[in-house]
Amino acid sequence: MDMQMPEMDVLAATRTIRASGGAWAEIPIIALTADASPERRRFYQGVGLTDFMTKPIDQAELAAKLASIREGGEGPPVAASDRLP
Score class of each variant (00 low, 15 high):
Ser20Ile: 00
Leu62Met: 10
Gln59Tyr: 00
Leu32Asp: 07
Val47Asn: 05
Asp51Lys: 14
Ala79Leu: 11
Ala60His: 09
Thr54Ala: 04
Gly72Ser: 03
Val10Cys: 15
Ala36Lys: 11
Arg42Gly: 04
Glu74Leu: 12
Leu84Pro: 04
Leu62His: 07
Arg42Leu: 00
Gly75Ile: 06
Asp51Cys: 07
Ile69Tyr: 05
Pro77Glu: 14
Ala13Gly: 12
Val78Thr: 15
Ala79Ser: 08
Pro6Met: 02
Ala31Gln: 11
Pro28Lys: 12
Met53Lys: 13
Ala67Ser: 06
Ala67Glu: 14
Ala12Lys: 14
Ile30Leu: 15
Arg41Cys: 07
Glu74Asp: 08
Pro76Gln: 14
Trp24Ala: 04
Arg70Ala: 09
Val10Ile: 13
Gly48Val: 03
Leu11Glu: 04
Ala79Thr: 02
Ala13Asn: 07
Ala63Ser: 07
Pro76Glu: 15
Phe52Thr: 03
Ala34Trp: 09
Glu26Ser: 06
Arg18Gln: 03
Phe52Cys: 10
Pro76Val: 05
Gln45Trp: 09
Ser37Arg: 15
Ala64Thr: 01
Ile27Cys: 12
Arg41Asn: 02
Ala63Ile: 07
Phe43Asp: 10
Gly21Met: 11
Thr16Ile: 01
Arg18Cys: 00
Gln59Val: 05
Met8Leu: 15
Gly21Gln: 10
Leu49Ser: 00
Ile27Trp: 04
Arg41Gln: 13
Pro76Arg: 13
Leu11Thr: 07
Val47Ser: 05
Thr16Trp: 12
Pro6Asn: 01
Asp35Ser: 06
Ala64Gly: 03
Leu32Glu: 11
Ala60Thr: 08
Ala63His: 04
Arg41Asp: 03
Met5Leu: 15
Asp2Trp: 03
Arg41Thr: 02
Ser81Val: 00
Asp51Pro: 07
Trp24Leu: 02
Thr14Pro: 05
Ile27Gln: 13
Ala23Tyr: 07
Gly75Ser: 10
Ala80Lys: 11
Leu66His: 03
Glu39Leu: 10
Thr50Ile: 10
Ala23Thr: 01
